[in-house]
Design a binder for these strands. Structure first.
Lengths: 154, 154
DNA sequence: TAATTGGTTCTCTTTTAGGAAAACCAAAAT
DNA sequence: ATTTTGGTTTTCCTAAAAGAGAACCAATTA
């Protein structure tokens, strides 16, 4: 893992810009690069030289947004944490955000009953987000099929 | 504008959860609800009773991400700020974020030359994001056509 | 039963972000 | 030439976030 220090720093910066805390960002990248793409609590505390609470809270946060999950091996108490790709930016998560946004737009549109150009724009953008909400599941559907095909070929 | 106080508070909470600062969120919603969907610096300072620097910085931030822009009227120095719907979540902005993300995934995939299941997952998710990058312009294209049609009917 | 392991939670400190207040500045008006 | 207008920038303060360190706790092991 030593050889990855620099790379972890670099990618973590990007993840921080997407809203992760410093330690959470590092843990996330670390896990993806680690042997068997999983690691223990202790390994991460040691590697980064940060406190147990920092790692504990980072993991808690990452688990809460489904970016990471933990498994035990052979009934041992120790947990192995790993990045959970498939759930990460789930349909639900995206859908919620999109809905939140066009809900505001629609409300503003009906509140200001002006029927001017700006109301038209509000309607247009709201329409775009609704299209997105409709199209995204279709894209995901197609994506899943390409994956299924890939699996078959193996 | 007085009658909107509550509504502005309510929607601003959502916008804050999407990453805007308190004042930026309020300015953004205020502008959409205001007469002619535009307002002056002074109006906002007065309405919210916050400092000029708070409003100035909020506007600076909102302009930098293309959510708001300013125009002058009749060569006057005073600027009228308004929400810039069409640019807001522009293709470029989305594209940059999406690229940032799959760039990390692709780099990690090539770095850990493991060729295991996890590498497969990385490739899958990266593929999804690339699909998105490809599909989004198509959706935008169709969206623009529906808008054009609407314009014609007027 | 005591000690160890694998964390979590609590309290305290440090860092950072958001905003206030005042100084500042350029353009326009007087 | 001075004052006013329409902001911007700088400095400072406060509050919130991130993390340290120690205490804690439940499960396991000795």
């Amino acid at each position: 893992m030593e050889k990855y220090r620099e790379k972890i720093e670099q990618h973590s910066a990007t993840m921080e810009s997407m809203g992760l805390t410093p330690v959470a960002a590092r843990v996330f990248i670390y896990l993806m690069l680690s042997e068997e793409h999983q690691a223990t609590f202790e390994q991460m505390v040691d590697y980064f030289g940060v406190s147990k609470s920092a790692v504990s809270n980072a993991l808690k946060m990452l688990e809460s947004v489904k970016m990471v999950d933990a498994k035990t091996i052979g009934g041992q108490r120790k947990r192995y944490f790993s990045v959970n790709m498939k759930n990460m930016f789930s349909e639900d998560y995206l859908a919620t955000r999109i809905k939140q946004f066009y809900t505001i737009l629609d409300d503003i549109r009906t509140t200001r009953k002006a029927d001017d150009d700006f109301n038209g724009e509000l309607e247009d953008i709201s329409g775009l987000y609704k299209m997105m909400l409709f199209e995204i599941p279709l894209i995901l559907e197609r994506w899943k099929r390409t994956i299924a095909l890939k699996q078959q070929r193996k």
